[in-house]
């Protein structure tokens, strides 16, 4: 079944479209909305978005695969992205990544069996003063250590 936006989301998309003189310019924001809705951008979603913006599906694919934030496959309820850039690494980011992977018993880029967590690395999040840091969905967590990570995960239901 091909995905469809709910009426509320359709309204949201209309608002976005009004920001630009060209429909196509709304592609990135509309993909964000789609990902919010469906959790990932599958082929069907690509086609739907292409139709919505009067562009070709291939143009959507070009964009979806260029930007790291669009997931082409479903991810866990909580997508944990651990910063692997310099400031975070200087302060032990790599060790914390290992800690997380062990704790959740998955490999990098994988999702836990209960579909709750996916872990990946990410380049500098722009929060280097809180290094080491990570992002869970859109929330930032900084000044991490193992204890703090334990607490954060405990709070993610």
């Amino acid at each position: 079944m091909s995905p469809e936006f709910s009426d509320k989301v359709k309204k949201q998309v209309q608002d976005i479209l009004a920001h630009y003189p060209e429909k196509k310019a709304a592609l990135l924001p509309v993909l964000h909305v789609a990902q919010q809705e469906f959790g990932f951008i599958g082929e069907d979603t690509e086609r739907m978005v292409a139709a919505l913006l009067d562009i070709k599906p291939v143009q959507v694919r070009e964009v979806v695969t260029f930007y790291t934030m669009y997931n082409r496959k479903p991810v866990g309820k909580y997508h944990i992205q651990v910063c692997s850039n310099l400031s975070c690494s200087l302060l032990g980011g790599a060790g914390l990544l290992d800690f997380l992977l062990k704790k959740l018993n998955i490999g990098l880029g994988e999702t836990t069996k209960d579909k709750k967590f996916t872990i990946s690395t990410v380049e500098c999040l722009g929060a280097c003063e809180q290094a080491p840091c990570m992002m869970v969905n859109f929330d930032y967590y900084g000044d991490l250590d193992e204890e703090k990570i334990d607490k954060i995960l405990d709070n993610l239901k």
Partner: peptide, 11 residues
């Protein structure tokens, strides 16, 4: 865009 590693000021 603030993507240059180390950069935090614009935020």
């Amino acid at each position: 865009d603030e993507g240059e590693p180390g950069t935090i000021k614009d935020r």
